[in-house]
Design a protein around this nucleic acid. Structure first.
Length: 129
DNA sequence: CGCCTGACGAAAC
DNA sequence: GGTTTCGCCAGGC
């Protein structure tokens, strides 16, 4: 059976508000899963890809369910715009995020991704949006 | 129903 | 350039 991946179509203007777009969360997870190994992206990039660039926070919120859904979402590959592992505190242990990244070849120094700009993976660009 | 918080981001200072 | 504040919107209390 073919892997039925939901077409991550980018709505013209997704509105987290007004309508509890639960799909928004799924989209975030989908994009996060598309992040190649050894690469990282930012919440804002994902949000922008979904058309909610102003709601980068919502992406972070969505990530709150990461690990709770199946398959597991590599939330450790998602960092903030600074390349800082702001979400490490939500992992258990907090150092897990860093460990996973290092394991995949991403250098992490002082809770910050080394050469983040170089490893940055833009969903809107890579996915062909 | 109103206030506060929160895994961000950009602008202001 | 580093630090602080506001804006963003949903969810919890």
């Amino acid at each position: 059976m073919p892997v039925k991946k939901k077409s991550a179509e980018k709505p013209k203007t997704i509105r987290p508000s007004g309508k509890r777009e639960e799909n928004f969360f799924e989209l975030v997870f989908e994009v996060a899963r598309q992040i190649p190994k050894g690469r990282v992206t930012s919440y804002g990039a994902i949000a922008a890809c979904l058309g909610a660039k102003s709601s980068a926070r919502m992406v972070g919120w969505a990530m709150n369910g990461a690990g709770r859904v199946k398959p597991k979402v590599p939330a450790h590959r998602v960092v903030n715009r600074n390349g800082m592992l702001t979400g490490k505190h939500h992992f258990s242990p907090p150092g897990l995020m860093e460990q996973l990244l290092k394991k995949e070849g991403v250098k992490v120094k002082n809770d910050q991704v080394v050469e983040f700009k170089k490893l940055f993976w833009d969903p809107a660009k890579e996915l062909g949006f």
